[in-house]
Nucleic acid binder design. Structure first.
Length: 804
RNA sequence: GCGGGCGUGGUGGAAUUGGCAGACACGCAAGAUUUAGGUUCUUGUGCCAUCGGUGUGCAGGUUCAAGUCCUGUCGCCCGCACCA
């Protein structure tokens, strides 16, 4: 009776589906548990072994929670808009809708072969008009609340995708998706005011249970800094406002720097005697791609503006103004006061252009290097600030500036507003029309969904316009407000739109009246456990927190945060320790594993491979160990005896395992949970028999990891009523976890001399007297005097001795 | 530069509050059953050696006791990066 996974696994997958055992109930008296994985992008390549790691992990949690009596929602869907599908469609002349449908069918089949307990009745698809109707609806609400606006601005442009990118999508100066060069273009774009939520996106991290690395990365990306804006008069009468976090060093400002794109330059054009030189520098800076700009980051360049000077507000000193690309137009005011003595970049610039360096904080040697330490310095050469600490000086100078009307405290963020439009076909149409008379007008909500029109050609254009721009029939429409002629917006939404709220749709996926009913939202919110990749920390995770907060503000959702708990899985690497990729030729297809070893082995191995949160290399050899374990479990049936109680000789082993497996699953320590089951089967093998109750408990413990084989064993041996998926998780008894006697170690001067079995409740005196009567210990302490005795119950005895 | 993390056998990885380092596997070796084994089972397996030493990147420190705590140092990975 060999275990045949090819027969057993499909059998149980069908039974589960027919019985609908994994369908979440919307009106249950049970406690709810909402587990969520990041829904996949159905690419043409199909699954690779990385996909099932998070699916299996939360499946293990979901299955265990069901056995514990929770009403579990564990849904899945498809994040199906996006460029790879569109590019494939263009190349092969198939409509993206067809490509998407085929890819989903393939993904679905692959995922179903793994026996993940998804509730397929709640499947969603971001490209379904019934779904994106609500994506568009949310956009309209954002627009109505002034959080969506269209603006001419300098944007990131991917030269290969022929499309703008959000800041979050530019990685090291190249496109996050395709790795192509990113250049700057001035374009009119739809923007979302995520910056309005910057503070709350940081502060509310206190409300959620996320890994520290995720919180830190989001805080870092939002980049809050507190400082001051200071107004400098100039010799032209214009005011030049700078942002600084070091207002305390104002007396040390010996020059100003403004970014090459700063608007005052144009204003000053006819006053500058070296305007040609300035324009040449501006042009050179504009030509640089993000990549080049970071490449040459070390060497400071710049041009002095001849003909205008700034006046330091604290001492009325006239100081020169430079333009330099080390000052970014997009941060603060696009202008800085330069304090070379106490800022490294200013110091480098001052050295190169031979500008004065005035020390205002004592503690370093500012001619040798910038002194930037805020904690220890004392103010000098700073008039009213002399003798103060840096912190006190900040407070005092900002007070003074405020009183004088020359500045004020200011908080700044690195976070930029979200560039939301894309010049591509395969995305949600933006439901806005442009009317000459009324400006931008949203569609009436009854007009939603605004469906993507069928087009002849969806190739991206070189003009920077969406392919939809060629669809004259579709574009020409009437203004919802005045009824006059108007044009539709032709850009589409980014892929991040549909995924920013999908977890809400799962709560009530077929609702035609709302994105989800209030009852469903109240019952299921928030997501209890959300697992996803670290790569989405400053993309999807941040975006969806923003959308959720907005929906909370307008009364749509009941919680300020979407996800109560977040965990993050490590990548599965190729056997050679490198990232799996087609070009490296180290991709493992899960179909092959399921075919050869079965889904249960695949699942077990993915959970056993190592620390869930860390990357782990795949090993074709190690999988065999997991298959072997399942076969040993299968073979327990050959040593089955009667009995409806766990026998005394296995009692503590079982109770310890029940505790450990349950705790480890909750603590994302799947690898040690499985190790505990392996250890338990070793204990059972030593006894050489297993009774029905023991096999029943073992089967339930193993079920979340290996659901198919456990169902089969359970059924074949009539271990209980119904099926395992509807059984009850065993309880452990703390008092039964302890054994009667325990082995302790006896050390002399920290060296192990003996091991003793003592009763588990032996007190220190008993342990010490037992230890001291052991002959090896006596030998080791011969001729010595004991100067200290340490006894730790259940652990060890240590005798500290020295020669007499 | 800033932020987060990691360094343990041949390999993947275990080690509550400091308390037997190497759980559980993979691999390897020997043996048994088969005897065609990429099967199964048993035993062994950190390193060096005979007792006994010695071992968690390296160097110190605290402690009866350190993978774990402290100081310094080297190396690696991830995120951000001229953010004023």
């Amino acid at each position: 009776m060999k275990y045949n996974h090819k027969a057993v696994e499909p059998k149980w997958q069908n039974i589960w589906e027919e019985k609908g055992v994994f369908h979440a109930s919307d009106d249950s008296t049970k406690e709810k548990f909402y587990a969520l994985i990041e829904f996949p992008y159905p690419s043409g390549q199909g699954l690779h072994v990385g996909h099932p790691r998070p699916y299996t992990a939360l499946d293990t949690v979901a299955r265990k929670r069901r056995l514990q009596g929770y009403n579990v929602l564990y849904p899945i869907g498809w994040d199906a808009f996006g460029l790879p599908t569109e590019n494939y469609a263009i190349k092969n002349h198939v409509h993206p809708e067809i490509v998407t449908k085929n890819n989903i069918a393939r993904f679905k089949k692959q995922i179903q072969s793994l026996g993940i307990s998804f509730d397929w009745s709640r499947e969603v698809n971001t490209t379904d008009p019934d779904y994106y109707k609500w994506t568009q609806w949310i956009f309209i609400q954002l627009f109505k609340h002034d959080l969506a606006y269209k603006k001419e601005m300098n944007v990131n442009w991917c030269t290969s995708c022929k499309c703008v990118l959000a800041n979050e999508e530019v990685v090291n100066g190249v496109c996050e998706r395709c790795g192509s060069e990113v250049v700057h273009k001035v374009k009119s774009q739809w923007m979302l005011k995520i910056t309005e939520y910057a503070d709350r996106l940081i502060n509310d991290l206190d409300l959620v249970n996320y890994p520290d690395r995720v919180k830190a990365q989001q805080k870092n990306w939002i980049g809050r800094s507190t400082g001051a804006e200071v107004d400098f008069q100039t010799t032209t009468g214009d005011v030049l406002t700078v942002y600084t976090t070091r207002a305390d060093t104002l007396y040390g400002a010996t020059y100003m720097v403004i970014s090459p794109e700063h608007p005052l330059i144009e204003k000053w054009a006819d006053k500058l005697s070296n305007m040609d030189e300035v324009r040449a520098y501006q042009a050179a800076a504009a030509r640089k791609s993000d990549f080049e700009r970071t490449e040459v980051a070390k060497d400071k360049t710049g041009v002095k503006l001849d003909g205008v000077r700034a006046i330091n507000p604290v001492n009325n000193t006239e100081i020169p103004i430079f333009i330099s690309d080390y000052v970014l137009v997009s941060y603060g005011t696009g202008a800085i006061m330069a304090v070379p003595a106490h800022d490294t970049r200013d110091w480098e610039f001052a050295k190169k252009f031979d500008l004065p360096i005035i020390e205002v904080v004592k503690g370093g040697n500012v001619q040798e290097e910038a002194f930037t330490d805020c904690a220890t310095g004392i103010m000098v050469n700073s008039g009213m600030l002399d003798g103060l600490s840096v912190d006190d000086a900040k407070v005092k100078i900002i007070d003074w500036l405020t009183k004088e009307g020359k500045g004020h405290a200011k908080v700044n963020y690195k976070l930029r507003d979200w560039v939301f439009s894309r010049q591509r076909y395969w995305g949600e149409p933006i439901p806005i029309v442009h009317c000459d008379k009324c400006g931008f007008v949203p569609l009436d909500e009854s007009e939603l969904p605004l469906k993507l029109p069928m087009v002849e050609s969806y190739e991206p254009t070189d003009t920077g316009e969406s392919p939809l721009a060629n669809m004259t029939d579709w574009i020409k429409t009437t203004c919802p407000k005045c009824g006059g002629a108007a044009l539709r917006e032709t850009d589409t939404m980014p892929q991040w739109a549909g995924s920013s709220w999908y977890y809400l749709r799962y709560m009530d996926p077929h609702n035609n009246e709302a994105l989800a009913s209030k009852e469903a939202l109240d019952y299921w919110s928030p997501v209890d456990w959300y697992n996803g990749g670290m790569e989405h920390t400053t993309l999807h995770l941040l975006y969806s927190r923003f959308w959720h907060k907005f929906l909370y503000d307008i009364g749509v959702v009941p919680t300020p945060e979407p996800y109560a708990k977040r965990t993050s899985h490590g990548m599965i690497l190729g056997e050679n320790g490198e990232k799996m990729s087609k070009s490296r030729g180290n991709v493992v297809n899960p179909d092959d594993i399921v075919n050869e070893y079965g889904a249960d082995t695949m699942r077990l191995y993915e959970m056993f491979i190592g620390d869930f949160e860390k990357a782990a290399p795949w090993s074709q050899a190690s999988i065999r160990g997991c298959r072997r374990f399942l076969e040993r479990y299968w073979n327990l049936q050959t040593m089955l005896i009667d009995g409806n109680e766990i026998r005394p000789e296995l009692e503590s082993a079982f109770h310890k395992a029940i505790k450990k497996v349950g705790d480890d699953i909750e603590n994302i320590k799947f690898n040690t949970a499985i190790a505990a089951l392996m250890a338990l089967i070793n204990d059972i093998s030593n006894v050489k028999s297993i009774n029905k109750e023991e096999l029943r408990v073992f089967s339930i413990l193993l079920n979340p990891f290996a659901p198919h084989i456990t169902e089969e064993v359970y059924e074949a041996n009539k271990l209980g009523e119904g099926i395992v998926a509807e059984a009850q998780w065993p309880e452990y008894d703390e008092s039964k976890c302890v054994e009667e006697s325990v082995e302790i170690v006896v050390q002399v001067n920290g060296r192990i001399k003996a091991k003793l079995n003592v009763p588990v409740d032996a007190d220190k005196e008993t342990m010490l007297s037992l230890a001291k009567s052991d002959e090896k210990v006596i030998a080791a302490t011969q001729g010595m005097s004991i100067i200290k005795e340490i006894a730790v119950p259940k652990k060890l005895v240590n005798l500290v001795v020295k020669p007499l």
